[in-house]
Design a protein around this nucleic acid. Sequence first.
DNA 1: TCGCTTTATGTAATCGCTGACATCATTATA
DNA 2: TATAATGATGTCAGCGATTACATAAAGCGA
Lengths: 335, 335
Amino acid sequence: MVTISEVAQLAGVSVTTVSRVINDYPHVSKAKKDKVFWAMDKLGYVPMQAARQMRGSGSQTIGVVVPEIINPFFSYLINAIERTVDKLHYKTLIIQTFGRKQNELTALDYLKRHQVDGIILCALENDWDIIKGYQKYGQIAVCNEYVDEDTIPMVIGDQFNGLRQGTEYLISKGKTKIAYCTGRDSLLLQQRGKNFDSDRYLGFTTALQAHDLSFNPAWLFTNAHSIEDGQAILKQLSQMAQKPDAIITGSDEVATGIVSLAKSLNIQIPQDLSVLGVDDQPLAKFLSYPLTTIRQPITQMGQQVAEVLIDNIKGTTEPAQKIKLDLQIVPRESA
Amino acid sequence: MVTISEVAQLAGVSVTTVSRVINDYPHVSKAKKDKVFWAMDKLGYVPMQAARQMRGSGSQTIGVVVPEIINPFFSYLINAIERTVDKLHYKTLIIQTFGRKQNELTALDYLKRHQVDGIILCALENDWDIIKGYQKYGQIAVCNEYVDEDTIPMVIGDQFNGLRQGTEYLISKGKTKIAYCTGRDSLLLQQRGKNFDSDRYLGFTTALQAHDLSFNPAWLFTNAHSIEDGQAILKQLSQMAQKPDAIITGSDEVATGIVSLAKSLNIQIPQDLSVLGVDDQPLAKFLSYPLTTIRQPITQMGQQVAEVLIDNIKGTTEPAQKIKLDLQIVPRESA
DNA sequence: TCGCTTTATGTAATCGCTGACATCATTATA
DNA sequence: TATAATGATGTCAGCGATTACATAAAGCGA
């Protein structure tokens, strides 16, 4: 491998001079600078990152931790983050946890090792008390999850108002018997500001109460994530004596599952059942019933969290920012 | 940051002994080994990767270069690769090129720097003559692209037979006037074994010839990639005097665009127009017309290319392997 | 022309880790 | 019991880059 000394030798200068040229430091004559560039080019020299890191000069890299990139929500989020990170002259290291706690901790170890200067957590696997301990090794920011900690920057969508407005939308369409799906266990839905599912749920119930509508507990579906979950939910629904006339899903996946089975179960959408998705995934508008859905501000989330984190890394900002972005209803045919 | 010396000191042994414990070398007494583990745990020690790399002990990392992870084809491919790479105790570094040549070269520089031990290219941006030069810095494998070079392992789908069979399928449904979409320029379609588009096209024309069908050059659509491209194509088609009765798209995206506009243009699918996709993307079956499509063996491709590359890194195999995997027709409603 | 600042360049220590080599201690073999 | 082999442990050089420090040359005002 080509080293800085080889470049120095070929250019007829010292390694220091080469280092100065590489890092664009002053006090190098035009003549030598040119020679160095020529030598670097001739040898195809690329500085070894590992050696630089050893000198403590940071990694110029930020880690982005997500559950899985095959989930479009996260791949679009990464996309937004990476474009911003690029713009700020950092590199992005994508780390998938596949939902495993251990993988999240391994990801955080990258901070200890100085492999990354900062980390964006786009999902939380471990309890915050555990993650907290890693703060001393580098900057951490959280995106799309709640963290009740002053020292951590956080960028989230305003789930409470998003769902409140979504519910209002259904009510404005004359729907009164609204079912509700969530990815969590039911037990965890009651405490505002703890996680986005509970915020959503409270937005939902708040809108209901504002219109004096009651919620039938039989219409609460928990642990719903996938298309298959959505299909299972619709099957259950279709066999109920008391049927809802609308359903709010926790994601476009679940909504996709529901609309995919409607025809075969002889359920008319949206007349018999309005279906409201969340996310506005790219293909939501091309489904058998184009989804009415609550769009998440993915692009801005990614952009802002990247900016805030890098600001913090550079030490240029004050207390951790908490940024809340608006969701937006996208009316299509399913509701 | 916690260093190996601090661990050594706390454990009351030399750094070498700690190093031996970390790397599971022999000749360390049980007693000292336990002490070292205890000290490592107590201090929360994680070896610094950069320092290890400097000693030439490889990075235990392989780079996966893709155009964009928001493309489900690639995110699923990465998924398959990463799971295999994990299993073989390597790490995965995902690198997006966003279709830019320079980004591909930067990715290849990771080899020079010893940031990765090998690279899987899942798309080719630069001419092969340029990429070739990087072989001396580390192992390179190519996935889903043609490379006419003995020294490079390559894993691809059998596009020729896939498209031949897909075309046969349409013919078996009574279709005789078949249009064709490709992502490339028309000029590049004629040479077998050069890229997968040309293989596909030749598979298509081969099937046509076998049934004495001719191909109307007006029905060739080039540079078709996105949903919007698909929509544009259908609009063009609908205004032709001579209309095809089937269309083979280069991807499920293009197929999605076509079926999404069919209803509003008053075109019945598949009666008026059969639409054949390629890829079998996860949502293909949930579209307004569930797509009949040619499934790519993504999982096996990812798995095999990872295995072959890591085999090569370890130096355990003979000449570069060329692996060709079968595509499979998934009949649904669009054709 | 003299001292003083500024610019240009080089020497060598250092970062954390591994591994070749050296040194004892212990056990096996003759 | 003497000697060789093996096991346990330590010392220290070196990987490739940065950077504190040293030094020489050039610029500059009086």
